[in-house]
Design a protein around this nucleic acid. Structure first.
Length: 255
DNA sequence: GCGACAG
DNA sequence: ATCTTGTCGC
């Protein structure tokens, strides 16, 4: 079980996010190059060992899964809406270090700037690593949903059905996309850092292969859940994992 | 006080 | 996220 965090510390984490978003918002421009290798990040949870973070590498052109890395460990923080990055990013960072390839882009399960302080987990990670990052979330966290299309008008998928607007300024923070024929609910695509909203949309929709999630996140999701199951069944031991045990000393500020 | 609330 | 049985649809 993760530690409970006092309200005083929560305020400090919120201040850190304001600092992060200040820098990240100035980085939201087109990368200027097409991605070659793309990382997908997702986490599942094992009852025994805690978080199971998986980083995968996908070849953007072929869609091939080239590599993956795992990090496990008990998160230091409980889940608090808006503060997900402080819970999961340390594990993601560890998983990333086990990767054998360099990469151009990160696709992360969760939000980017479509966040109360414009500092979702994709923003934290993209800014810290100095790479383009995109958040792909399955549920809205913040903002007003604006529909630019009726659901019935979406014949060809993926279909951009609307966007999420900043309640203060009306600025577009994320696009809502129906990834395939089956899904009733959209996915939310927002830039994390070092990329703009339009490029984020194009890039992610081009990696939708009939699945609800884009290929990188799709694979990371499947692998992390699978490993969490094996761990809880005792079929797999933490020391057998590629990427090893998670060191949680990164991304967590001293509070 | 009430509703919202990534994973 | 995870816990869980049945159930709707291709």
């Amino acid at each position: 079980m993760s530690m409970k965090t006092p309200y005083s510390n929560i305020r400090k984490l919120i201040e850190i996010q304001k600092n992060i978003s200040y820098k990240a918002l100035g980085s939201l421009r087109p990368p200027g190059y097409a991605p070659r290798l793309v990382v997908g990040l997702d986490a599942a949870y094992s009852r025994i060992y805690g978080g199971v973070a998986v980083a995968v590498i996908i070849d953007y052109v072929s869609g091939s899964l080239l590599d993956y890395s795992v990090a496990i460990g008990e998160p230091r923080l409980e889940y608090i809406p808006g503060l997900l990055a402080f819970r999961e990013a340390p594990l993601f960072y560890t998983a990333l270090q086990g990767l054998r390839h360099e990469y151009d882009l990160l696709v992360i399960d969760g939000h980017g700037i479509s966040h109360p302080r414009k500092a979702g987990i994709a923003t934290h990670i993209g800014l810290a690593l100095g790479k383009p990052s995109i958040g792909v979330a399955k549920k809205k966290l913040y903002g007003n949903e604006v529909y630019i299309k009726k659901l019935g008008e979406c014949n060809v998928h993926p279909c951009t059905i609307g966007y999420v607007a900043d309640p203060e300024t009306g600025e577009k923070l994320a696009y809502m996309v129906l990834p395939n024929k089956r899904s009733r609910a959209p996915i939310y695509i927002s830039p994390g850092a070092n990329i703009d909203l339009e490029t984020a949309l194009k890039t992610v929709t081009s990696m939708l292969k009939g699945t609800r999630l884009p290929l990188p996140t799709y694979h990371a999701d499947k692998i992390s859940k699978h490993i969490a199951r094996l761990l809880d069944r005792g079929v797999l031991k933490p020391n057998q994992l590629k990427g090893g045990l998670g060191r949680l000393d990164h991304f967590m500020p001293r509070i």
